[in-house]
Design a protein around this nucleic acid. Sequence first.
DNA 1: ACCTGAACACCGTTCAAGT
DNA 2: ACCTGAACACCGTTCAAGT
Lengths: 188, 188
Amino acid sequence: MGTRLAMVEAAAGLLDREGPAGVTLRAVAKAVGVSHNAPLKHFRDKEALLAAVAAAELRKLAEARLAVSPTLAPLTRVKRMLMVKMRWALLRPQRFKLTYGAWSRPDEDLSHAAHEAREIFVQAVANAQSAGELPKGDPERVASLMRAITHGAVDLALSGHLDRKGKGRADPQDLIEDLFVLLAARKG
Amino acid sequence: MGTRLAMVEAAAGLLDREGPAGVTLRAVAKAVGVSHNAPLKHFRDKEALLAAVAAAELRKLAEARLAVSPTLAPLTRVKRMLMVKMRWALLRPQRFKLTYGAWSRPDEDLSHAAHEAREIFVQAVANAQSAGELPKGDPERVASLMRAITHGAVDLALSGHLDRKGKGRADPQDLIEDLFVLLAARKG
DNA sequence: ACCTGAACACCGTTCAAGT
DNA sequence: ACCTGAACACCGTTCAAGT
């Protein structure tokens, strides 16, 4: 399978099961069945391995967005693409936190994957604007607004700052829909 | 000054200057001038110290929000309170990331401080609604929408996912203002 | 090209002990 | 009540060496 890929997958699995503290180079090596320092032959340091995990997640995200049927109504496609990210983040919170976490230096692959995933979404937003289903204006900026809501709602929910219980019910999906209601009132 | 408080401040300082990796119990102890394991006499473990740092940040945030002049127009107060958080997050990114990061167990003080800060904001939103300056509806939910935008915009900006340069210019403040434009179109 | 084993400096945490 | 010093298991990373 390629030792390098096996290490990336082992790291992702450890992250899911044991959290960030559980992802050690030594545990990854053990899971793959090599000596404790073998990972450093494939990655310059621990962060490079984590960046590879994050980049792989973003590539899968981009792929899933491309798989959203192009025959759907343009605005529905935009919503579906947001849902793709929202569901991924709620299903794999540790991977989401890692991917959007703090990197001490830029990583080529990671930046590229992030750019790809973002462009796919911006294009979908531009299409919905052309179809008159979203307010006009810089598609990058409209897309940023949607991304911010989604990202913020998910992150607040994951850190327990959203308080789903009680009448203030507001899970990430509710908030995203609230934004679309506001945008619909302005469309054209 | 109280050794415990000194430890919390030392930890916050280390976090600002050297990032999460720089915050070790041993470095905190050294900064305070005690033996390497003295912090564990004040905090049950490292996470408890970090939670104390986060709780202190949220208490300061709540205080700053309370300090927003009550003579301002209700909607202006709401905006100012969001700006308080936004500016804090952009000025002290490491503290922001820590505060809303992953905690392996609930912390009494931290939860309480978060609740206080949130309530102050929700109350301001409710006031703006009563004054007809925001759309009607559950104030908790309207507040959540605003908090999600703010949180998401800041977090994306801090992780370099917002792309300020180019025409897609959208810093956190821009996005917050975009939301208010949408809300204004619906007010009453 | 890819891996191993020993070694180093560092870490969180525990424990017995001191004032 | 608060702190110390030794000790333990663990970690990332380096290095010399092996195939």
